[in-house]
Design a protein around this nucleic acid. Structure first.
Ligand SMILES: NC(=O)c1ccc[n+]([C@@H]2O[C@H](COP(=O)([O-])OP(=O)(O)OC[C@H]3O[C@@H](n4cnc5c(N)ncnc54)[C@H](O)[C@@H]3O)[C@@H](O)[C@H]2O)c1
Ligand SMILES: NC(=O)c1ccc[n+]([C@@H]2O[C@H](COP(=O)([O-])OP(=O)(O)OC[C@H]3O[C@@H](n4cnc5c(N)ncnc54)[C@H](O)[C@@H]3O)[C@@H](O)[C@H]2O)c1
Lengths: 246, 246
DNA sequence: AGGCGCTTGTGAAGGCGTGCACAAATCGCG
DNA sequence: CGCGATTTGTGCACGCCTTCACAAGCGCCT
């Protein structure tokens, strides 16, 4: 969904797939369920109904049940879902039991905030290396890590077993950084730079663009405003039908 | 898509809607087209083909043409699209000609980065007010703005004509801040806190959650790894279907 | 032991989005 | 002035996703 995805040909011969190939839409919601489940676990709940979990995750309960049914049958009819079991299952599916190593490239304004964020560690990720091209930034300590020069990226990726790269450089440098990451063996990239990245097949790219989010909100503001201003009316200008013809 | 949307009952009686009600998927892509168009305009291009613009925006050319056709006919067959005209049209549709006023609540780690980001101003947004609950933060100057106490939010929203609020507080405070924003008259919220917000109908909420993005990438890493490790194999554990029953 | 209420899991239907393929339209050139 | 090259705009079919509605299953209470 508005995300770049370069798939690989499965060529799967087995009847039941080694990996339940969930719908993309489902995958995107699993993290939200997981968060809700963790919250429930903290409050001491042993089980949740689909209704309860759906409410906590902000979705329709039918959708939640269908999503979870793709993982297998981990609920009990008449009772609900076992919270701890479901957490384990979702974390397993998402591959969060591996505590993935992440590299962050570009420790500027945004990079500093990301490097100092503790919300990643608590969700199964370790930022294990920071990189920048600016000599001023290189060498400084940030949250227990030393910023290294971007030229060392290739070596570090291999040594630290990094599989995910986060790009927080200006847009002009993003493609070059992405190329370096891919060359080093990174197969997943989270891109904060406002630009389209070209990557080979088999590499996943997800983009986060705050300006785009604001622009989408702006559209809805515009729409709402035009509706309240002219209730049931028509466009302020350019209200052309097929009427005003030659 | 994975975004909260509280629609309002249209009750539209007119034949042709006052506002071209574009598909959500199209709206989400317009900002990307807009960026690509601005890039093209800077390089001096007067016109673009759907093929060219699609490549620059990272989408299929058929999809791009269908998207643009929803706005009207702003292309010329055999030639392409007029770059400047298309920019104007998209900016009008997105409501970017109004330079919307934005409030940022929570100037911590992430909030500082957002407040210092110049990429918003260049895309039609002005951050006009900063708020925090921490007395340590209140009063400090940031990028030409003074951080105000969150209690002043209601007054400021009205005075400054703020329609969009950005929440960058811890998750525990997010709902309360959202309530304040809505009470003050804000109808669009961009939420960085990892939690679900409840808002009344007519208010749009978009959420940005970096941990979710990483978890989605992690899933694909997991999938890719299991495919290469066990080509055509099955799940390491818990491969229960309806077999092991009784 | 049996019945009753509750909740899951899923078949089916409808809606939305995507991409193909082509007709319609425009420009440039001879 | 007509023709061919080019590119837009769109009808159509297909697949994915969502939502409804309900049968199947489970536990509890009597
Ligand atoms: N700051 C925000 O709130 C924000 C919001 C949305 C998007 N973004 C985007 O995130 C990116 C970073 O934003 P920022 O505000 O941190 O910018 P910044 O200029 O503060 O930081 C960029 C950093 O990247 C480094 N860099 C430049 N080229 C590099 C290279 N080739 N290799 C490695 N490092 C390199 C720079 O030295 C600098 O430290 C930009 O693309 C921006 O558009 C930022
Ligand atoms: N830092 C990141 O890179 C990052 C990444 C992803 C998500 N987030 C999320 O963004 C949010 C902010 O993250 P952060 O790292 O900046 O946290 P932070 O603790 O550094 O900043 C939070 C700020 O919010 C203020 N605040 C608290 N309660 C408030 C209230 N009721 N009203 C107004 N302000 C209030 C605090 O005083 C503080 O300044 C969190 O929800 C976090 O999970 C942050």
């Amino acid at each position: 969904m508005s995300q770049q995805r370069q798939g690989s040909t499965p060529g799967n011969t087995g009847a039941v797939p080694a990996f339940p190939d969930l719908p993309e839409a489902t995958i995107a919601r699993l993290p939200e369920y997981l968060r809700a489940l963790h919250n429930l676990a903290e409050t001491g709940s042993e089980t949740v109904s689909s209704e309860g979990l759906a409410a906590a995750a902000g979705v329709n309960s039918a959708k939640l049940r269908k999503d979870l049914s793709h993982l297998g049958s981990y609920g009990t009819r008449g009772v609900g879902y076992d919270v701890a079991l479901l957490i384990d299952q979702i974390e397993y599916i998402l591959g969060l039991d591996q505590r993935r190593a992440v590299a962050l490239v570009g420790v500027g304004n945004l990079g500093h905030a990301l490097a100092g964020y503790d919300g990643f560690a608590s969700r199964g990720f370790r930022i294990v290396a920071l990189f920048d091209a600016d000599p001023e930034q290189v060498g400084q300590a940030l949250n227990g890590l030393t910023v290294r020069h971007v030229e060392e990226l290739g070596r570090a990726v291999v040594e630290e077993g990094i599989t995910i790269g986060v790009i927080a450089t200006p847009a002009g440098a993003a493609q070059a950084v992405a190329d370096d990451l891919v060359a080093a063996g990174v197969t997943s990239i989270l891109n904060f730079a406002p630009c389209v990245l070209a990557v080979p097949a088999g590499v996943d790219v997800r983009k986060v663009d705050l300006a785009i989010e604001l622009q989408i909100l702006s559209f809805h503001e515009h729409r709402k405003a035009s509706l309240t201003a002219l209730p049931g009316g028509r466009s302020p200008q350019a209200g052309n039908q097929e009427a005003v013809g030659s």
